[in-house]
Design a protein around this nucleic acid. Structure first.
Length: 154
DNA sequence: GCCAACGTTGGC
DNA sequence: GCCAACGTTGGC
């Protein structure tokens, strides 16, 4: 089973927005970066777990755990001119962008902040913490995943 | 195919 | 709002 970290801006789509959806499930659209696209399209599997990360906000950090419930399928918002992430160059016959469905497993008891994550030597290789890395979808090792889960109750 | 300009991300 | 990092675009 794979482990991931997925970033979203809470003012756009936060963990409480996901919690409000029917079955606490929604599609994760708007990925418009090729590296992130390749991860979800080629590596992400149904049943994989991911951390829900709030970015670009007052207290950036990990706020919950979600599960992948549907493997990558074309991101329909790429073809809708009214959508923020409309991409006129994406051809419906050869979809450029993909999305997955995710279900909220649970919110964490507390936010594990970016600041806190940076304090841990064991996590220094996480791409989230590497200088200049702005990927919105990134894989975690089992070790990193388990380490972070334990931080929740520290 | 190079590379400068430009746009976006995201922490601060 | 600033700015560093870096991906994309487009002229040549």
């Amino acid at each position: 089973m794979g482990h991931w970290l997925m970033k979203s801006e809470p003012q756009t789509f936060g963990i409480d927005d996901l919690a409000r959806q029917p079955h606490k499930t929604d599609h994760w659209d708007g990925i418009r970066n090729y590296q992130a696209r390749n991860y979800i399209r080629d590596k992400m599997r149904v049943g994989d777990l991911a951390f829900f990360y709030h970015s670009n906000c007052a207290n950036p950090g990990i706020v919950g755990i979600i599960k992948i419930t549907r493997a990558a399928y074309p991101d329909l918002t790429a073809w809708d001119p009214n959508e923020k992430y409309f991409d006129p160059k994406s051809n419906p016959d050869d979809p450029r962008w993909f999305m997955v469905d995710v279900k909220l497993v649970r919110k964490l008891k507390r936010v594990i902040s970016l600041h806190e994550l940076k304090q841990h030597k064991a996590l220094q290789d996480m791409s989230l913490l590497r200088r200049g890395n702005r990927l919105s979808i990134m894989p975690l090792t089992h070790k990193q995943w388990n380490y972070i889960v334990k931080l929740e109750t520290n």
